[in-house]
């Protein structure tokens, strides 16, 4: 690069990061926040777009999208597609995004039977409980799916949840434009 070019180069643009929890428990987001004070240097290099941390409702063009949770209902499908359409690099974050996780343990039970048992015939239900049918509720899918079964995923970061250190390493690699790898002890499925 010529001198002239080097002088003209603007300071590196902050990368845009979007995050979402689909059929997850927010455990991965909590683990993300466990990077603690490292959040501050991170915020000098990234800026949050849609995320539970910003309350922005729709994802704009982003560099990195982190998706926690699998896909269990029609809204999840829509949001996941929105993330894929807007994020240059899409990451499946955590066990549920990677393989459906514990919510996918319902996959062998017919949806109707499942709802009957949970809301009508199971233990400890209030008298008169019924299956929620508010039209605003997204419709459940027959099975819970990992995100890669619905859209193309660039990177996978397993763990229930992935540790803060694993998330930190992974994000740093992505920000620096390296292919992320998980160092010793950071690859865990549980």
């Amino acid at each position: 690069m010529s001198d002239e070019h080097a002088r003209a180069a603007p300071p590196p643009r902050k990368l845009k990061l979007a995050t979402v929890s689909l059929a997850g428990c927010f455990g991965c987001h909590t683990s993300f926040l466990d990077i603690d004070e490292r959040l501050l240097p991170l915020l000098e290099r990234i800026e949050f777009d849609r995320s539970p941390l910003t309350d922005i409702k729709h994802c704009g063009p982003c560099d990195i999208g982190l998706v926690e949770g699998g896909v269990c209902n029609a809204e999840n499908v829509e949001v996941l597609r929105e993330f894929r359409a807007h994020c240059r690099v899409l990451v499946a974050l955590g066990a549920c995004a990677v393989n459906g996780g514990l919510p996918a343990q319902r996959n062998n039970i017919a949806l109707g039977e499942l709802l009957q048992e949970v809301y009508r015939t199971g233990h400890g239900l209030a008298a008169g409980s019924r299956i929620p049918d508010d039209p605003e509720l997204p419709l459940l899918l027959n099975q819970v799916h990992p995100v890669h079964e619905v859209v193309r995923i660039d990177y996978f970061l397993p763990g229930c949840p992935p540790s803060a250190d694993a998330i930190w390493d992974f994000l740093n690699a992505l920000i620096e434009g390296r292919a992320p790898t998980l160092g010793p002890g950071l690859l865990q499925y549980d």
Partner: peptide
């Protein structure tokens, strides 16, 4: 799977 660096099951799940 850890040793082989398996990050994703990659294929569609059977959920038998």
């Amino acid at each position: 799977a850890y040793e082989m660096g398996m990050l994703t099951p990659h294929f569609d799940h059977f959920y038998p």
